[in-house]
Design a protein around this nucleic acid. Sequence first.
DNA 1: ACCTAGTTGAAAATCATTTTCAATTAGTTT
DNA 2: AAACTAATTGAAAATGATTTTCAACTAGGT
Lengths: 148, 148
Amino acid sequence: MTVDRLAHILRGHGLKLTSQRRAVLKVIAGSHGHLTPAAIYELVRKEYPTIGLVTVYRMLEVLAELDLVCRVHGETTCRSYMMRRPSGHHHHIVCSSCGKVVDFARCALDELQHRLSRETGFKIQGHLLEFSGLCQGCLGETAAEDHR
Amino acid sequence: MTVDRLAHILRGHGLKLTSQRRAVLKVIAGSHGHLTPAAIYELVRKEYPTIGLVTVYRMLEVLAELDLVCRVHGETTCRSYMMRRPSGHHHHIVCSSCGKVVDFARCALDELQHRLSRETGFKIQGHLLEFSGLCQGCLGETAAEDHR
DNA sequence: ACCTAGTTGAAAATCATTTTCAATTAGTTT
DNA sequence: AAACTAATTGAAAATGATTTTCAACTAGGT
Ligand SMILES: [Mn+2]
Ligand SMILES: [Mn+2]
Ligand SMILES: [Zn+2]
Ligand SMILES: [Zn+2]
């Protein structure tokens, strides 16, 4: 997506077009990888040395709000833990209401993985898969609430 | 996994069995959901009010080292961003070396999702899927290095 | 040119995590 | 049972990331 197109979208939402915002957009739109706020800040500073880190944070908030950025998950960037129950390769279904977790093993991603490897040239080494929703218990509760 | 079994594993790795560690183990092993360090700390304090938050952090480090805990990823707990390229539902393949991201759309998880929903009683509302590996460029570089 | 709501950035506040260090203790050795 | 010792603990300080506050500034409308 071009910076001008993005700028137009922002304006369409009643947001002002400042040179700081343009600079941030240029950096994020011009990169082919994911960037942390700090990394974006460092890159933007080369073009706009007086920009504040706060402005980068605020810009990311706006972009996330408008669903213009994607979040990328790192293997080790989450600090929510639970005791490991199955010992081998497995994944989780997480209840977004109470946090309950159920494990499952057969993810059947080999076929997809091979296809993607072929199509993108990546040597794929791992995957992250997680389902989210409501557990039976929490489903019952919301049903009971709806009933009142 | 029982606390005694866990305690035994720790001891097998030359780690001392303190009452603090027992208390932390009891809380994590007794929960059916994922917990942040702060949440674990609050729960442990009920049984062991003088424990320090530092001890919880250290215990989690140990458990992660021995691969006795699982990490759970939250939708919004990662702060690495990139500009959104496709507009609809899609996923990422991330290069663990340079951070490059390639998108793909057909994840074909419906079948799996239905099976899991049936088997677990969850109302599944979303999923998180991400592949990681090395992009073509970074593959070339490591090959060149190996050649020297 | 003027107005004004939105925006900015320095600084302080808040929150999470790590480091430091002196005191304590688990598990071993006498 | 007492002594020993390396591992462990927790208060406090240090570090790092993110948010809040607020006075000054500016984009875009009139
Ligand atoms: Mn698990
Ligand atoms: Mn994407
Ligand atoms: Zn639930
Ligand atoms: Zn790469």
